Simulated assay, not measured.
Amino acid sequence: MHSNIVEETDMKQFFSRPRALGTLGVLAFCAAFCTAFCTSTASAADLLAEAKASHVLRVANTQSSPPWSLLDDNNQPSGYDVAIAKEVGKRIGVPNVVFVADSFKNFVEGLKSAKYDLVMNDLTPTPERAKQVDFGDPYGVEDFRIFVRVENTDINGQATLKGKRVGVVTGSSNESWARAHLTDSDVRSYDNGGLVFNDLGSGRLDAVIISHFGGMKYANVNHLPVKEVGEPLIYQLSAPALAKGQPALLAAVNKAIAGMMADGTIAALGKKWVGANYDMVGTIAKARQQKE
């Protein structure tokens, strides 16, 4: 293992040669030394220990993607992911969970910059995201569908999206799926579901790919003339995300989720928030077996 600590004798030898290296060389060395030292120090921080010491677990979600994350009638975070996060906090020894509102496109950078400890908001563990952050075990799942205007009869499945204008939410897993699988479509990204559904309702888009629950929310709440068509395009798991280099926090979260799977907590919360007939545990198992 190579250390980021520069030996004192090496430092003395370096700074004894300023004429040979010049002022810019000295400054460059100092910048590199500081970057390496600060990075090493930051990565050494144990977020689980810090959360226990401060008695606060910071969890990010959008607070605008029901039934997973929303604001209730008292303007407080609520929903399936919120309930799961609160239970995780209790089981890892940090029952005071503070929710931080953010958007999907900011989640990865928010974790990397220590803006929050966890992201729990219907976030799918994709290979691209896993290069930058770690994911715990899945605790949720949903199916992604195609939504079109009610009078549309041309689009009824993935094959009929060729050449069509398809809206997705920026930074979401439906965007990454669409760009990978709909190469013959005009895929357009929007900052949030409200905007993308407004354009579908007004005819500026031919279709939208979004979760069943998200799509039904925008259709019903905004009274838009849209409908869901075709079979699910894909089942997508949701899992807690956290910064890399946090083995203690990752292990604690996974242990909490395993316990919630075993004792029926996840099944009960799924029925409460997603639907009385929704088999969260069984659908998670189905999603883990699927192949894209």
Rank of each mutant, 00 (worst) to 15 (best):
A267E: 02
G136R: 00
N96W: 08
D73W: 06
D134M: 02
L205Q: 02
L47H: 06
Q289F: 05
A45Q: 03
A159W: 01
T124V: 02
L57R: 08
F99L: 09
V196G: 14
P67F: 04
D117I: 00
A31I: 08
Y139W: 05
P138F: 00
V59W: 04
V281H: 04
V133H: 12
A45S: 08
P232Y: 00
L242Y: 10
T41L: 03
S173E: 09
F104Y: 07
A243K: 14
I210C: 11
D206N: 07
S202Y: 13
I155E: 09
S202V: 08
E128P: 01
G163M: 04
V82Y: 08
A101E: 09
A28L: 06
K90R: 05
Q158A: 11
A32F: 02
G201L: 10
V150S: 14
T124A: 11
K90A: 03
L57W: 05
N220T: 07
G140M: 00
V253P: 12
G171I: 06
A31M: 06
V133I: 15
G79P: 09
V208G: 12
V196Y: 08
G79L: 10
F99Q: 09
F147W: 07
G25H: 01
I92L: 04
G201P: 12
S176L: 11
Q290M: 15
V208M: 06
M11N: 06
D102P: 09
M216E: 15
E231N: 07
A219S: 09
G270L: 03
I210G: 07
L237Y: 02
N222W: 04
A83P: 13
G270F: 11
V169F: 06
V108N: 06
A219V: 06
I84G: 15
G93V: 14
R145Y: 15
R149M: 13
V148A: 10
I234L: 10
F104R: 03
R165P: 15
Y139L: 06
K86W: 01
A159I: 00
G136Y: 00
V166T: 10
D184Y: 09
F144M: 13
T153I: 09
A49Q: 05
